[in-house]
């Protein structure tokens, strides 16, 4: 056990930053992409609807791990420039997150009473102004709780990147146990605590926001 603390230190120093970078970057793509796709749905254009629905269903329908492998191993074979391990994981997680984000944004937009849009249009405002000054400000409050839970899901799912591999907390554990297999159990338990201490504050913040926005 004397090896445990130095090993845990390495997991935190080398692994945790990548876990956090992946989660935050993927979440940024998820929020940005989700807004664009969700607002496109609000246009109620049949072609755009079909495209966005196809994207959302496909991305949500395939395992994130396969998506990561596809980006990392598959795309170079199709002639795309190879992207790094970390970048591949971020792209895959982000694309998956954006599909979920699109549903969050769409759901929140459509939950705003139609009368709000009608009142804005009747005043002579154009569609974009109605969306940005009337609908989205109200809808975005309703998006906060589901986006927070998406965030915790992204953090957890990012551990799949260990298989590319990306040196996240989980992969750091595996590296440490190559020379010291007895560290598996204590380090895995430590990793569970690490994830818990990332996600629990997000979850708490979400509950608090939910109460404040209610």
């Amino acid at each position: 056990m004397s090896d445990f603390w130095p090993a845990l230190r390495d997991v935190i120093v080398y692994g945790l930053p990548n876990t956090i970078i992946m989660s935050v970057a993927a979440m940024a793509i998820a929020v940005g992409g989700g807004f664009v796709l969700g607002v496109l749905r609000a246009l109620r254009n049949k072609v755009l609807d079909a495209l966005v629905i196809a994207y959302v269903e496909i991305l949500r329908g395939i395992p994130v791990l396969i998506l990561m492998f596809f980006v990392f191993f598959g795309l170079p074979q199709l002639g795309f420039n190879a992207v790094g391990n970390l970048q591949s994981a971020i792209i895959a997680l982000g694309l998956w997150g954006a599909a979920n984000g699109a549903e969050i944004v769409r759901g929140a937009i459509f939950s705003i009473d139609k009368g709000q849009t009608e009142a804005g249009l009747a005043l002579g405002l154009n569609w974009l102004t109605v969306m940005t000054t009337i609908v989205l400000p109200q809808a975005s409050r309703r998006m906060i709780p589901p986006f927070m839970s998406l965030f915790t899901a992204v953090v957890e799912t990012s551990s799949l990147a260990a298989l590319i591999p990306v040196r996240d907390v989980l992969e750091s554990v595996r590296i440490k146990t190559e020379s010291e297999p007895s560290l598996w159990m204590p380090l895995l338990i430590a990793v569970l605590f690490i994830y818990f201490f990332i996600n629990y504050p997000i979850s708490l913040a979400s509950q608090r926001l939910e109460k404040r926005l209610a």
Partner: peptide, 21 residues
């Protein structure tokens, strides 16, 4: 244009539809 028409027409709704924010 919508805007030229709607500038000329004010509308008041049964459910008020004020912007709550």
């Amino acid at each position: 244009k919508d805007v030229d028409l709607r500038r000329r027409v004010g509308m008041v709704f049964q459910q008020f539809n004020l912007f709550p924010h």
